[in-house]
């Protein structure tokens, strides 16, 4: 009997440890699942709660809701230390660095929107403050995309890059960033 119990404990422990430590799922409680992939060292990302996670120096993740491309991604960003965080849309996790995309750098020195490696805009007045939560909403709608920081639309752009399912987030070097209130929803349903 003792052996059976030991076996079961080991079996459950192994289930918990899991064989894909680079994958995670958020929002399991409200069924609006967000699937995540840790693209950096595992130790640079810490999934804390059902919809919050911490990125440490160089922490790099890709999040998506499968098959949802017209998406609105909502984050509360709290930069604990360092420069800031980078968001990418219209890109994919596979060979990310080779793929064109739209990047939104949100840092203490200001913000910028970069498309296909070229600066679209630099927003000096939109900057992060250390340990002060900021709500960032990025939405894709057909060929348009919106970036909203604390309820202000800071950039509305148009692109011919195809929509993808991914929102990719990377902590800038030597930055610790807490992401909470994470959700990815359907832009069209939201607008209706």
């Amino acid at each position: 009997m003792r052996l059976i119990i030991t076996s079961l404990i080991i079996a459950f422990a192994l289930i918990i440890v899991s064989c894909s430590p680079d994958l995670f799922t958020l929002n399991q409680r409200n069924n609006k699942y967000v699937n995540g992939l840790i693209m950096s060292d595992l130790d640079n990302v810490d999934v804390m709660n059902d919809n919050s996670l911490m990125l440490y120096d160089g922490g790099f993740i890709a999040m998506r809701r499968p098959e949802l491309t017209g998406l609105t991604a909502d984050f509360t960003v709290n930069i604990k230390k360092g420069d800031g965080v980078m968001f990418a849309i219209r890109s994919v996790s596979d060979h990310f660095s080779d793929h064109p995309g739209i990047y939104f750098d949100y840092s203490t020195g200001g913000s910028s929107v970069i498309e296909k490696g070229k600066d679209r805009i630099y927003l000096k007045n939109v900057y992060a403050k250390i340990d002060e939560p900021t709500r960032i909403i990025i939405s894709n709608d057909c060929s348009y995309y919106n970036i909203i920081v604390d309820c202000d639309t800071v950039y509305k752009g148009r692109t011919w890059l195809p929509n993808t399912e991914y929102v990719i987030v990377k902590a800038l070097p030597k930055s610790d960033v807490l992401l909470s209130g994470i959700s990815i929803t359907n832009t069209i349903v939201e607008n209706e």
Binding site: L3, I4, T6, S7, L8, I10, A11, L14, I15, C19, S20, P66, E67, T69, G70, V92, D94, C142, S143, W160, P162, N163, T164, E165, Y166
Partner: peptide
């Protein structure tokens, strides 16, 4: 015991993984 321990790796023991990406082209 052997089955319980080894069974935890059956799912890990896949030889191939598939990734699917969806692009929406406007």
């Amino acid at each position: 015991f052997a089955i319980a321990v080894s069974s935890q790796f059956w799912g890990c023991g896949t030889y191939s993984r598939t990734e699917t990406d969806v692009y929406t082209i406007s």
